[in-house]
């Protein structure tokens, strides 16, 4: 199963998003968070992200959802520092954080492969909230 990693500056944002997802997937998905700094400030930590990717990866790849600026930069650095085959099977989704995370988790739980989960997650950008 594709793993999902939520990278946010805020531990609360990541935990809250995880809670939302849990309502729908009921534990049937490999998902984890890498959020805030090791000393509990707002921020991201490339080393922490790298370790969480390694933990979440089961061989089918990991899709990473990111919030703002440094989440992207830290995740890119974390991926660069991974060993193969993890390096080429960890991708960042260019998608809104909360909606993207929900879709990614659902699609992963349905057994879609990494490319499919990424595509469907990024399609979230096309949704209109107001119909």
């Amino acid at each position: 199963m594709v793993g999902i990693l939520l990278v946010s500056h805020s531990l609360k944002i990541a935990q809250g998003t995880l809670e939302l997802i849990g309502q729908m997937t009921k534990g049937k998905v490999r998902i984890d968070i890498a959020a805030g700094t090791a000393d509990n400030r707002l921020g991201t930590d490339a080393q922490m992200i790298k370790q969480k990717i390694e933990k979440t990866h089961s061989g089918d790849g990991v899709l990473v959802l990111v919030d703002l600026g440094s989440a992207v930069i830290s995740t890119e650095l974390a991926i660069e520092n991974l060993d193969e085959p993890l390096k080429s099977t960890t991708l960042i989704a260019d998608a809104p954080f909360v909606e993207g995370a929900v879709v990614a988790a659902l699609e992963a739980s349905f057994g879609k492969n990494l490319e499919e989960v990424k595509k469907l997650t990024e399609d979230v950008k096309k949704y209109s909230k107001l119909g």
């Binding site: 700094t37 707002l42 991201t44 490339a46 080393q47 440094s70 830290s74 650095l77």
Partner: peptide
């Protein structure tokens, strides 16, 4: 560089770290 990457928190961590 490695230390900055894992301790700064903001974008300056991976940037100055790199």
């Amino acid at each position: 560089g490695m230390t900055l990457v894992s301790t700064v928190g903001g974008a300056s961590g991976p940037l100055y770290g790199t």
